[in-house]
Amino acid sequence: MFLELKNIHKSYGEKDYKVEVLKGIDLSVEKGEFVVLLGPSGSGKSTLLNIIGGIDEADEGQIIVEGKVLEDMSKAQMTRYRREHLGYIFQMYNLIPNLTVRENIETGAFLSKNPLDIDSLINVLGLKDHQNKLPNQLSGGQQQRTSIGRAIVKNPSILLCDEPTGALDYATSKEIMKLIETVNQTYYTTIIMVTHNDAFKDMADRVIRLRDGQVRKNYLNQTKIKAEDLEW
């Protein structure tokens, strides 16, 4: 198994104000799988993503990635884990404002011993004409494409996407989804995507539905369709 989560618990606050966000999550993901995490606000899907990404820590349970237990890792090992295995895409892009498009992508490449070719990636992302612009000169879609470029240039084994189209319009969202699909197919990158858009489940290999911090549904999608055919 490529990624395994066992009995993950997570709560915030203390005593009377304690809120249990994840109540014992168990799930497994295969290498190269496209996983869509669905659920309403407060269901715990972003928290779960952050725990997988090593940004947040579980109170209880185990996360095993390619046989390595995350909880056993030191801070330095955790940094190396993120550096070597993970790519992250956020709803609000989080680009470094004073670096150009190309330089933002280079921040990812810098971390990898075996990065993708930056020029061809910029072509694939459709950013060739914008590569010397600063983020504030770009549209939302262009910024998100840059953030995808930055995440995948280091050739991560897992790409974590937190509502990557949450701030985008329909056409741009579709464009981004096509790009993520391409990444998944071209580089065989495992993708875990948090979304509240139900339509995206149709392009996933695996669909996990969360509610109140628990997995309500976890199934393989037998009728997978292409991103460009998605409608919502």
Partner: peptide, 13 residues
């Protein structure tokens, strides 16, 4: 801070 935080997420030490 935002950029530094993002760099940490990406794996910068």
């Amino acid at each position: 801070a935002q950029s530094i935080s993002m760099s940490k997420i990406m794996g910068y030490s």
